[in-house]
Simulated assay, not measured.
Amino acid sequence: MRLRLYKVTGHSMLPALADGDFVLAFRCARQALEAGDRVVVDHPEFGRIIKRVDRILPGGDLNISGDNPAMSTHSERLGQIPRERVAGKVLMVIRGPGLSRLNTVMNGAPAAERVTTQCPQDTNASGSVRP
């Protein structure tokens, strides 16, 4: 199992995740996913994004979307996501900005990566993903 820390940017996952929150996500080879799970995805067009699993399709592909439809890229535009594109399943949310001490608290863990809740190319979206 591999744990990663991501910083959330964007507003498409409100109210569950806000801009400036952090999420701890894990990935393992045989990760169990189900509808309702929040996942970090390496999207081929939009980069690293965080969304919620709407449903799992035959063959294991995922339909994903944001929690805030007014501020999110729609699942039709995101397309079906192969399971191997899932970078991690959100395990825990750490609220709020101003957590610059987080790496120290995490015992010297690598810096948090940014994960957007929205796709930058969408006219209703903003945010970016940066390691």
Rank of each mutant, 00 (worst) to 15 (best):
F22L: 13
A29N: 01
V105L: 08
G96S: 07
G98T: 03
L57V: 13
N107Y: 06
A32R: 15
H43W: 04
R48I: 15
A32C: 06
C28F: 05
N107S: 04
L33D: 04
G108F: 01
A70V: 05
P82N: 05
L14Q: 08
H43R: 13
H74D: 11
I81A: 06
V93C: 09
E113H: 09
V53G: 04
S65D: 12
A32I: 15
G88M: 03
K89S: 08
G60P: 05
M92N: 10
R55P: 00
R101C: 03
S65M: 09
T117A: 06
M1F: 08
A112E: 12
R77P: 00
L3G: 08
F22P: 03
A109M: 14
S12H: 02
A87N: 04
V40M: 14
A35V: 06
Q80E: 15
R4A: 14
V105N: 00
S128D: 14
A18L: 05
E34Y: 05
D61V: 08
L99W: 10
S65I: 03
S100C: 01
L24R: 13
E34H: 14
L5W: 14
A25G: 13
A125Q: 04
N68T: 06
A16I: 13
N107A: 11
Q31M: 11
G127H: 12
L102Y: 00
V115Y: 01
V93D: 10
R85H: 10
I81N: 02
I81E: 04
A16G: 10
L17K: 02
A125Y: 00
R95W: 13
E84S: 07
P131E: 12
R77L: 10
A16K: 13
A111D: 06
F26V: 02
T116C: 07
N124E: 00
A111T: 08
P82K: 02
R114G: 13
N103H: 01
S72M: 03
V129R: 10
